[in-house]
Structure formats: C-alpha cells, structure tokens
Design a protein around this nucleic acid. Sequence first.
DNA 1: CTGAAAGCGCTAACAA
DNA 2: TTGTTAGCGCTTTCAG
Lengths: 337, 337
Amino acid sequence: MKKLNIRELAQSLQLSTSTVSKALKDSYEISSKTKQRVQEAAARLNYTPNPYASSLKKKHSKTIAVIIPEIADNFFSLAIKGIQSVAETKGYHLLIYLSHEKFINEKLIVAECSSGRVDGILISISEETISPEHYLKLTSEKIPIVFFDRDFENLDIPKVITNDYDCGYMAAQHLLERGCSNPVFLSVSSSLPICAKRAAGFAAALCAAGIMAEQKIISCTGNGDATVAEIRELLVSDHQPDGIVASVERLAFQVYLVAQENGINIPDEIKVVAFSTVETAPILNPSLTTITQPAFQMGKAAVELLFKCIEKPGVDLSGTCIELPSKLIIRNSSSGG
Amino acid sequence: MKKLNIRELAQSLQLSTSTVSKALKDSYEISSKTKQRVQEAAARLNYTPNPYASSLKKKHSKTIAVIIPEIADNFFSLAIKGIQSVAETKGYHLLIYLSHEKFINEKLIVAECSSGRVDGILISISEETISPEHYLKLTSEKIPIVFFDRDFENLDIPKVITNDYDCGYMAAQHLLERGCSNPVFLSVSSSLPICAKRAAGFAAALCAAGIMAEQKIISCTGNGDATVAEIRELLVSDHQPDGIVASVERLAFQVYLVAQENGINIPDEIKVVAFSTVETAPILNPSLTTITQPAFQMGKAAVELLFKCIEKPGVDLSGTCIELPSKLIIRNSSSGG
DNA sequence: CTGAAAGCGCTAACAA
DNA sequence: TTGTTAGCGCTTTCAG
C-alpha cells in the first residue's frame, strides 16, 4: 500500500485539499456530512498527514528534546518516565539526547536543538559544563528551556530541582548521630552544582558539630576501575573513615564492592548513606540508607513547566524554581552506633 | 537574535539560495572561495537549516523510533544506550515511545510512525501484543522495522534476540544441580514469546530430569502489590518450592522482599536465579545469580541491522535473526546444595 | 460551506 | 561555477 498525500485523498473524494485539511481537524467551517465522508475515507485509505510538512507550515513540531548526561541511571530513567507520562497526554514526541557528561557534546546537542526541530528543551547538565552561553543563545532565539535536577546556577532559566544542600546536611547529621566521628563525602565533580551543594551541606553539618570539614570532601572523578582504586585506597588507609556519604549511587555500589572484597563490615566499621533512587536499596547487603530524589515527579514537574513556557510565550516564567524535596530513608547500612 | 532562513542568508551574501545550499554541504560544484565565504557567514549569523523543510524535500528524517514497553528497567536503559551509541555516530535522532505493556498503545505508536516521521523503527513488543497487523502495515509501506529482545514470532521481520530457551534450560539445570527438587518458574506473561521460551526451556530441563513440569510454571501477571501477594502465598504455602527462576528481575526483587519479611533464608530454604541485568546483583543480600542479557550489545546490533535496512533498501534482510547469548552468572542466591 | 492559491524553508534539476 | 525554478505536503487566508 503506497502512502498517499492530502492531494490524492482530496482527489479521490472530489474535494479540494483545503476542505479535506479542515475536515480532518474537525473544523467548524465544514459540514458534518463531508467531515464524516472525509474521515471515513482517510481511515479506509490509511492516510496519515506528513508531520514535517505540517511542522514546516505551522512552525512548531510537537516535539521536545530531553538532554541528559546518561541513560543507564535509575534517576534519569525515572525522570524520563515522568516526562513521558505528560508528554503523551499532550501528544508530544520525545527526542532523547545523551551528553555522556561531556561539555562539548552538550553544546553540539543544544546547538542542534536551535534549528527548530523542537518546541522546547529539558536538560540536566553535564558534569563538565562550566559556561552557559549555549543556553543563552537558545533563550535569545525564544526556544524555551528548563533545567531539571542538574541546573546551571545564577541564570534566569526556569528549573525544577531538589533540596540538595539540606540533604547533604541531613546525611552528615544522620551519620554523626549514629556515632561516626570521621565521615567523608565522596564527590563526583566539584564544578557540578548539585554535587557542590550536597558537599556544602555535608560540610556545614560537620562544622556545626565542631568537626573540621577540610579534607573530608573526597573527589572520585575517574570512572570505573579508577574510582574503585581510589575507594580501595581510602578504605584500607590508616585513617579509614567510619562513615561515607556517596554523592551518586554508583559510588555507593563501589564502596560495597570494596568493603566486600576487603572484609570491611558495613555498618559496623563504616556506615554508608547514598544519594540514590536504586530500587534494590532494601535488599542490598546490608540494605542501603538513601537520600532518594523524587525522580518521576521532578521529570513531570519539569515538562509541565516547559509546557507552560511553550503554550504561553507571553508570560514570563524566568526565575521560576520548583524545589521538590528528597527523602532520607534509613536502612541498615547506617544502623548501630 | 532572530532565526534566519537560507534565503536571507543568501541575500546577505548576494548569492542564490541554491549556491548557499550547495556550499553548506560542501558540494563539488561550488568554488572553495564561495564555500568558505558561505560557511563563515553561516557560522557568524548563526544559521541552522530547518530540518523539517529539508526532511520534507529529501523524504527522510534522519530519525528513528525506539518503542519499548517500559523505560525504568535496566535492560531497556542499557539497550537504548547501545542504540544511541551508534545513532549518534550516524547523526541520527532518537524518538522514544513507551507502550506501557499495552497492545493498544503499541498500535497507536506504530501507526503514528508510519507517517514519515521516522526512517526506521526499533521495537520490543508489549506483553499484550497478540497480532502483528500493525507491523505488517509498516513493512508494506516500506518503512524498515527490527525487533530487539522481545520479538513477534513467525514473521519475516529482522530481529536481534538472545538465547532464551537455552537460558531457561540452563537456569533449571543449575537449580537441579544445586539440589533443588521442586523448582518453579515465575512467568509474567504466557503470550510473550521470550517469556514462553524461557519457560519452555525450564520445563524441558525438568522433564529431562524426570520431574513433571506441570504446575511448575506459575504466572505472576499482576503488578506491584498483587504480585507480591501471589509470591507471598507461594512462599508460605505447604508445598513451598525450593528453587525459583524469575523470568524478569522485578519478580526476583519481590521474592527477596517476601523472603526477608517472612524469615525465609535464601539460598538455604529456597534458591533463586533471575533473568536480570541489574547492576547491584553482586551486592544484594544474598548476591543474586543471574542470567544476564547483553543489553547494550543487543541494542547496538539492532540499530546496525536497522541501518542496513535503511541504507540499502534493495537488499533483502527479511528473516535475518541475530542471536546474542546471555550468560549465567552464579552467585550466592543459588549456592549450597 | 467549499475552493483557489500562496507559501513555510529547503533541495535538485536544469539553464546559463 | 552559479542561478532559476519547481516542487516536497501541508495550512491558511481570502474569495466565492
């Protein structure tokens, strides 16, 4: 069956293309009799309008871009799920782009998005991102953008984030209450605002308890084996910490692995808390205390905000910041003390 | 900064649009001097060609659709990552659609894809899918489609799958070797081919060992709490099984939870093996024996196959089936015996 | 209520 | 080597 276009459909009905076009979208200008005739024929002949022709004419595409650093990560999968749940009710399409945590990739993707391909952009910035020009260019071209989770600070771009500073504080405090005297924070990037905020909260809690926070923020910037090596070195050192806050779940997994391989008991010798949405937290060995972000809700809130920008180009949402709190869920990895 | 089009760019250079168009794509017809002039101007004025206009003309979109049942699932996240890794090198865009395991959604999505929006489709079918007309319609319209992981059987559509039957067999055999005399298989859907194949392999291994496989295939079709209830009932029943093969990882997690809450020891009282790609398998309590699919590679192989279909519409790839083997990774949840 | 016609921004014959 | 022109398939005034 050959794909047919609106002209052919119109011809087969002895109507003009404009009548058919209007009938298809149920316009009040068309008699209900012809509407029916047209819609019936369209269904029968399997007519589907070419979305690109229509986008070209209407100057919007009913598609949005989601730019994330990584997809094989529970947080982002859940966020996409949230995004998709509302995009689908609005008939929007979702284009997914991965920056792989690289600034250069992110810039290329963002530039590509300014071509008119998408009506709006949802982005969680890469670890490397240090300047915002590419976002600014987008806003100057009036294509709406909203940050979710990982934002670029001091910009007027709308965002939905979580209470990272408070959670960093909470995590440290929790460890302190459980008897840790030498907790450390495992950071993935000092330039990444969310990580910096978590670290800052952590440091503040230590200070409040009279502990010097210097040297308690440990950067684990490599990935894979390099990080494992760093963690191994940390855990078997003379000044082994007695508590760990993992800024991302991957680091917690690595801590577990290293502890396991070196016979270090969690939580007796070392307690751990992780920023994580991992589903298996309750059945880990031991079950993992987490700071869990409302990933699905954040995705949802972010698209909703984006749709507001798209639908009401007039109203000024710049500066809007929605903060959805994360939750500390206490499990066995931090018990005892 | 207002977005400009090719005509305006051409005007500002005192050239024709066709010259500019060709210069932009580095055509041999254009002198290198003007090429440079054009490209320099395009960069300076921030010109980006409208992709929809170009798609309309060229009759392809450089975008492919990925249709999956669910995104918050390690297997699919990894598969997307594999897909993306090759799409990005080819400059293709990725549209993601979720069927939420519903046949009706899948049909709608597939129909939408036949509009010319995408150059090809990668799909993992929903649990409910029972008829293939919507796929056939696509192929009759010459839009390439390839199945990955969850295929619809007895069709000539290319696919990349894993050795599900063998793995079901292997899982059962492993449990038997470890001393189980009453293993069961937890199925999510009897109509879903991959699940059925896993179950069939499982049953075959039992038969080979002289065990009646009747009633050993247990369907856990509800989701969430309903499934937990089913599993709870199974585990505390008089004829409690001493081995479980979970056809999907979610079921294994639920088994762990129920075992935990009822003080049932894994692996002493009951051993478990799960079809799963979960990253935390080694650090679960106890570490989980898995049949792990090569998710990333499957995604990669699938797009590569799809690109072959797209790039060489002439050659006939129908019937192509790439089978990438999964691996049994033995851990503590099935130890002892 | 229906139709004619212009044009969205780009590409690709074909001319020059 | 560059320019003219005719669409791609659709939507949308504007006339009828």
